[in-house]
């Protein structure tokens, strides 16, 4: 297990991403954050908090579960439980910041975009990612990136968060050391 980001780095990356989001979208108007379950949700919450502190207004927050939109339904043996999507605001005409921890093949993001579009027609969907590990299988890119790292196909990149794991860090693991 190799640590690639510690809690300070994660904190600074999120702060920078928050500034970049505000710069690109010219403030908090018409902005909403949507985290992809499960780790993306924690990051979206933190980004919303930082933006709220900077601007005085906290943008609406949603969560997405992509289980029902996967393209490998017929291949995976142990189906994860579908935990539901919560988007309690109208997405039509809104600039949506989609938040996830790790960008890899791009298939999760593809599914998440489909989920959002089933709720309406956003003005834009932008992607914020803490770690881009490369090896894309779809033409998808992130608009805001915490850190880019090089990885092998058989490695896992995992985000640990205070809320669930007691500490914040990003690690690269080999297949057999998966937690």
């Amino acid at each position: 297990m190799k640590e690639v980001m510690d809690s300070q780095e994660i904190k600074r990356s999120l702060a920078r991403i928050a500034y970049e989001i505000l710069e690109k979208n010219k403030g908090v108007d018409n902005l909403a954050l949507i985290g992809i379950r499960t780790r993306g949700v924690y990051l979206a919450e933190r980004l919303a908090k930082i933006i709220g502190k900077l601007e005085g207004i906290t943008p609406p927050l949603g969560t997405i579960d992509i289980t029902l939109y996967r393209d490998d339904f017929q291949e995976i043996i142990d189906q994860p439980q579908a935990r539901g999507t919560d988007i309690m605001f109208d997405v039509t005409g809104v600039n949506i910041i989609l938040v996830d921890d790790v960008l890899f093949t791009g298939r999760t993001v593809r599914a998440a975009i489909d989920v959002i579009i089933d709720f309406g027609r956003p003005k834009t969907i932008q992607l914020a990612i803490l770690v881009d590990r490369g090896r894309r299988e779809l033409p998808i890119h992130a608009d805001y990136i915490g850190k880019e790292i090089q990885t092998k196909p058989n490695e896992f990149v995992e985000l640990f968060v205070k809320e669930e794991d007691g500490e914040d860090k990003v690690v690269v693991m080999k297949k057999n050391e998966k937690r």
Partner: peptide, 15 residues
């Protein structure tokens, strides 16, 4: 989770 889908504008998933 399926009950929530029934309250959405698009009441359909590609699963």
């Amino acid at each position: 989770s399926f009950r929530k889908i029934l309250d959405r504008p698009v009441r359909k998933v590609p699963t």
